[in-house]
Design a binder for these strands. Structure first.
Length: 665
DNA sequence: CTTAGGG
DNA sequence: CCCTAAG
């Protein structure tokens, strides 16, 4: 039996931040590891989170349930436990819920901008929303504040009718898997079991909506991330509790494919409305963000990083890896989020991620952003995961199916993504060019700027990606969807096919930014993203076009294993910074080197620096022909050798000094 | 947590 | 990059 499920995740404002792996992260790391056994969370975690919420509600009942019960059971149990309140409560501050309410109920959006247009979907959903509203209105209202903060910030929330489904996820608990779309009318789905999700994008404006259907099995409407998503969850359990919430980010526990250990539950990840991509790590100023961001990002300060914080939403990520990934995903509802990326120069580009094509009115508004001439503002509405093809035996259990899907998704999202920048349909490969040089400036080209999440070849073994098709969506580009997403739901935005090139190119950096702080002043170019206020940028979808998941077991096993961090070759600028620091500090003080030259580069640990130095020394000693990767200027290599020789000598002297002493003793 | 090295 | 031993 071949099930083809299409998972469209629209993450509006979904980001994959890089989690700083600070110097001190090690400990955390270890902690995390212990805690989680196989979990690998990365971008995916967010999804999981969301899903989790949908399915299970906020937190997690979890442990016990999960641990003891069978998978099936556990799900069931969990489901029962869901309730709107809990969901809502989780992130009251977020306003997601409220939005939902608003959309359904009031229909008004605080920000008018948000809903410039009505969608069909909206109308559709309205009823649902209203239902929900009725039920829980009180609670919700109380809990949540109305209006999404996000919306305030950025106006561009609105999606046009086009934007459709961002997230569609369907699962059935029972043995059968049904694929459905949103019809609620259909009972077929409902009947059996538990969980079916259908999320569709819906335009809610910036906010996310949370809906719950209580009665029969109902439907939870969620719009996560951005804009409009409707999620229906049909829960067989009648309970009172089914609830849906839409958070931009929420946690999903259950999804965990890994049967084993506890699942990670992510308590909350909320969508942050805005986050900065590269704010100084220390600053952490995500002003706009809710607490969410922090949690997602691991912590700005290294201290916090892995450990879950009780107070805020924690994201108990089991693995540090998750953090390690520089990328994290954040959703934003309306896509209101804005992100700023600062490059070494200190420039900051703000990005708003929002659903895909964003052509939104907001853009116009954004112009205001431009005020600072030299900065390019980019808004990314969302990144989507278009399709996922799964093949699984009929005899497989639902649980295995879930795991399989999870794995597939995880492989894609968590396996390593890189961001590709497209300009007028062409992939911009030179990471070293400045935006200006590339033609990405606030006054031009914005319309043709697109971003794509591309599978990182090195990291996605399991996934079969066709190279050629990364899903890319040029922002405004009218192009048709990529082939990958055949169905309408597929994005509206046109996508251009693009390059599939694997790694080397430029994109490698996650938006998150790695801009390493220090190294080169010139780095700015690294972040390719740019946009001006005007244009919305569409986000590209992930391309995992089709993924075949085959043997679950293997994968799962694999997945359980900690993921390896993505490879991030050192740029010349970084090498330069490293060399300079080592010349000054010497070779044995990697922590100091880290602090001195890479303090802002969260993804570079002192161990990484030490390793890099090791390889640099090696590189310097071999013939140029034998060197691979981005060529390092000979001058730097010479300095490496010189410094290495010098410090080796120093060390030797030190040792000699000691030697006599020892003797004496 | 840091270092240092091997893998 | 990861993992580990050692400090």
């Amino acid at each position: 039996m071949v099930l083809q499920k299409r998972l469209d995740y629209g993450f509006h404002d979904y980001q994959v931040p890089t989690m700083p792996r600070a110097t001190r992260s090690a400990r955390k790391r270890s902690i995390c590891k212990k805690g989680t056994e196989g979990s690998q969370m990365r971008a995916f975690d967010l999804l999981a989170t969301v899903a989790d919420k949908l399915l299970h509600g906020t937190e997690g009942p979890t442990t016990n349930t999960i641990d003891t019960s069978t998978e099936k059971d556990r799900y069931t149990v969990v489901d029962k436990e869901l309730n709107v309140d809990s969901l809502c409560k989780v992130e009251p501050s977020q306003g997601f819920v409220s939005e939902l309410v608003l959309s359904g109920h009031d229909k008004k959006c605080e920000s008018k901008d948000c809903f410039p247009q009505h969608n069909e979907h909206v109308e559709h959903s309205l009823p649902l929303a209203s239902e929900v509203t009725n039920f829980e209105m009180g609670n919700l209202a109380s809990e949540v504040r109305v209006g999404s903060p996000i919306s305030k910030e950025s106006d561009n929330c609105e999606l046009d009718g086009k934007s459709e489904v961002i997230v569609k996820y369907e699962l059935l608990k029972t043995e059968e898997v049904l694929t459905r779309t949103q019809d609620r009318g259909d009972d077929s789905c409902k009947r059996e079991d538990p969980v079916i999700w259908d999320q569709k994008a819906r335009v809610l404006g910036n906010s996310v909506s949370c809906g719950k259907v209580i009665h029969n099995k109902q439907i939870v409407q969620n719009s996560y991330f951005a804009t409009q998503n409707n999620v229906k969850v049909v829960d067989r359990d009648d309970d009172e509790n089914s609830s849906g919430c839409t958070h931009p980010v929420s946690s999903i526990k259950s999804f965990r494919t890994v049967p084993s250990s506890r699942d990670r539950r992510i308590k909350k990840v909320s969508a942050s409305k805005s986050w900065k991509v590269v704010p100084r790590y220390r600053d952490e100023s995500l002003s706009k963000t809710d607490g969410v961001w922090k949690s997602l990002s691991c912590c700005k300060s290294s201290h916090d990083s892995c450990r879950p914080q009780k107070s805020q939403m924690n994201i108990p990520f089991k693995k540090r890896k998750f953090f390690d990934c520089s990328s994290s995903v954040s959703n934003s509802d309306g896509g209101v989020n804005s992100e700023g990326i600062s490059d070494s120069n200190g420039k900051v580009a703000k990005m708003d991620s929002s659903g895909r094509s964003c052509s939104v009115s907001g853009h116009g508004h954004h112009k205001s952003f431009q005020s600072k001439d030299s900065h390019v503002k980019i808004r990314i509405k969302s990144f989507r995961v278009p399709e996922l093809f799964i093949e699984i035996a009929e005899t497989a259990t639902v649980g295995s199916l879930k795991r399989t899907v999870m794995e597939a998704v995880t492989a894609i999202l968590g396996g390593g993504l890189r961001v590709g920048v497209l300009l007028q349909g062409k992939k911009v490969r030179d990471d070293n060019k400045t935006l200006f040089q590339t033609g990405i400036s606030h006054d031009n080209q914005l319309d043709s700027l697109g971003f794509a999440l591309e599978p990182n070849p090195s990291r996605t073994p399991l996934v079969l990606c066709k190279e050629d098709s990364p899903c890319i969506l040029p922002c405004d580009a009218p192009e048709p969807l990529t082939r990958y997403s055949p169905d309408a739901s597929a994005d509206h935005p046109g996508s251009s096919n693009v390059l599939p090139e694997p790694h080397g190119d430029s994109l490698g950096n996650f938006i998150e930014s790695d801009h390493d702080s220090a190294p080169s002043p010139t780095d700015t170019s690294n972040h390719k993203s740019t946009v001006d206020s005007k244009a919305l940028v569409t986000v590209p979808a992930m391309t995992a076009e089709a993924i075949s998941v085959v043997p679950m077991h293997r994968k799962s096993k694999r997945s359980e294993v900690a993921q390896r961090r993505i490879r991030r070759p050192f740029s010349v600028a970084e090498v330069e910074a490293l060399v300079q620091a080592v010349e000054k500090l010497g070779t044995g003080r990697w922590r100091d080197v880290k602090l001195r030259a890479f303090d802002n580069a969260k993804h570079r640990t002192y161990v990484d620096l030490k390793d890099k130095w090791k390889t640099l020394v090696h590189t310097a000693r071999i013939s140029p022909q034998q060197r691979r990767g981005e060529p390092v200027p000979q001058e730097l290599l010479d300095r490496v050798l010189t410094a290495h020789a010098y410090w080796s000598k120093q060390q030797a002297k030190y040792q000699l000094k000691r030697q006599p002493e020892r003797f004496l003793l």
